[in-house]
Write a protein that binds this DNA or RNA. Structure first.
Lengths: 342, 342
DNA sequence: GCCAAAATTGTAAGCGCTTACACTCTTCTT
DNA sequence: AAGAAGAGTGTAAGCGCTTACAATTTTGGC
């Protein structure tokens, strides 16, 4: 095969009759370039099919043209959606997406922070998806010189997009209460160091608040850990069925946990809403399939929104506006697993 | 904040008392480096926490240290699993993973091939997951100088890992036939330019072969397109229910399509296996939940295996062995949606 | 019209690494 | 024991880009 000669900035300079320097500036839309020059350069570059070498650009102090997407896992439905949405935004803006999955291993996260300098040299920015960061990690990232944005994180010194988790849980719980249920259990994700689900504690708060609104209180025995997984939800529900008096309704803090609960019920010859009403949060595609009542959250939108904020920061480095925090709407979707308590 | 001075190869050279050149060679385990020098360099590098600049390395003709993972989508269960497995292998071998999702858009694929030179300059290799490539695209990639490996592709001039799709379909169909079913419909992914499911035609072949083994033939009216999606499966099954005589068993060429079929049945007051036996391929986690009989395929294993092959190629560029093609085992899992036909 | 200020363009020095090639030591031959 | 061959190491020239800073052209005020 013929080794195609790479089109360099030099070629563009020659064709446009300008210097490399002017071409470089024109290409990056820097000031101090006449319109005429700008046009000539654009023309020559197009004609030659010129694409800047990101390696050279980076080495010389420019940008890498890539952004890291860091997520606790890439396989869970939520993250797969958010990652793809972000990747699309980045791709459309000309950035490569470097995927980093923590896979529930704190060692991976540690490695990233140990080599933050290395990372900052390979990417221009970082998009964090629900990553549980210690204060010092937040500080390190903020000081790294990298542009940062996140989804589903709170009190961070950069742009964040999420839902109001407390409100979502409140919506779900209030729906149950509104149907006349007052004997409620909650399947809650646990906060662990290894695999923290940042949102769970807020959701638990929303649950409590809804109860309080109805002059009820949370019974500790009816707060059960689900790990926010199908299997965890199943185990939690099994426990509920085996060892405790069955509540009339269950709020699972994510749909996966609700699936597990439904499964456990079926294994015991029970079903929703006949024996127990069940509601989740997410609106996983399978929820529709199973008729699960839930509170829907826009997942791809969150990823795309945060990605756009990050791209904006990167492209308008000049505008140093305050970090913003955006809440996207959640919406109760009543399906078949919840009904009025008689 | 203090701008930390980047540790360069120069620093390592000074500390080890050797020249930059020797350090560079030692670091990359090239020949012609004495053990003493090797040790000194390793020592100095460790002491300084030296990490080579991938940009500089790349620019100078070395490697980028990143690998592109190209998939038709990142959200589907299969791809999310495979991507994460590959990302883990790459990460452990020191490579960054650049995720590129085609998102069912041929325009994205075209853009990649238009800029293959650009890509080859940003990554060392490419892992293709079930990407439908034209002959010319295969040729371009093979000639690009990039290391390539793939999952689920056939007759490609590079390492490939997959399952025997025809066999898997044969296994599923034979199970149905073995239970006494002879009136079968198949829900098959369609081959379209936009969103081709490469495996579908092989699976259809396996279906045919199983029928033939039992001296039956495929009835064209009972081959229905499902797009390999839940919704497609649902529509397909609805069609079957509405317009045609119901077969006694249905083979869906992936679990998602089977889910849709089950849903459609439920909407019409039917259920599996009571009215129709249903089997899929994949062993999606939800299949267990729904009791769907299926043929399991190792998904993460395929991604990891292919990723390892690619890393091997990259790290032992000297060994120019033939491209290999590996088939991983599939296994019938009999659950509750299939039963003997009386 | 003249000159300073502003706008535009060019020159050249790296960024941190790889690699062709030159050079210095060892080892073996014979 | 002298010379060739080879192992180990160093020198220096880039890779393609960005960016101070210098050089040049344009603009505008009076």
């Amino acid at each position: 095969m013929v080794k195609a000669h790479r089109v360099t900035i030099q070629d563009v300079a020659v064709l446009s009759g300008l210097s490399i320097c002017t071409v470089s500036r024109a290409l990056r839309n820097l000031p101090n370039v006449s319109e005429k020059a700008q046009a000539k350069v654009a023309d020559a570059a197009a004609k030659l099919g010129y694409k800047a070498s990101s390696a050279a650009a980076r080495l010389a102090g420019g940008n890498t043209g890539s952004i890291a997407i860091i997520a606790p896992t890439a396989t869970a439905w939520f993250f797969a959606q958010a990652v793809e949405a972000a990747e699309e935004v980045f791709g459309d803006s000309g950035f490569d997406s470097v995927l980093i999955s923590l896979r529930g291993k704190s060692s991976v996260k540690r490695k990233i922070f140990d080599d933050l300098l290395g990372l900052s040299q390979r990417v221009d920015g970082v998009l964090l998806l629900n990553v549980d960061l210690s204060e010092s990690e937040v500080a390190l990232l903020a000081a790294s010189g990298l542009a940062v944005a996140s989804v589903g994180m709170t009190s961070v010194p950069w742009d964040n997009v999420g839902i109001d988790d407390e409100l979502a849980a409140w919506q779900a719980t209030s729906h149950l209460l509104g149907l006349g249920h007052w004997d409620l259990a909650v399947l809650s994700g646990r906060e662990t160091q290894e695999n923290s689900v940042l949102t769970s504690s807020d959701r638990l708060k929303g649950f409590s608040r809804a109860l309080k609104d109805h002059h009820l209180t949370v019974h500790p025995d009816l707060v059960i850990n689900s790990d926010s997984t199908i299997d965890g939800g199943r185990k939690a529900m099994n426990e509920l069925i085996a060892h405790r008096s069955l509540p009339t309704a269950v709020f699972a803090d994510c749909d996966e946990a609700a699936f597990g609960a439904l499964m456990a019920m079926r294994e015991h010859g029970l079903s929703a809403p006949k024996n127990v009403s069940v509601i989740g949060i997410d609106d996983h595609p399978m929820s529709w399939f199973l008729g699960l009542s839930t509170v829907a959250q826009p997942v791809a939108d969150q990823g795309a929104f945060a990605a756009n904020l990050l791209v904006d920061r990167l492209q308008n480095a000049d505008a140093p506006n305050e970090p913003s925090n955006h809440f996207l709407d959640t919406k109760l979707i009543e399906r078949k697993t919840t009904r009025r308590q008689r």
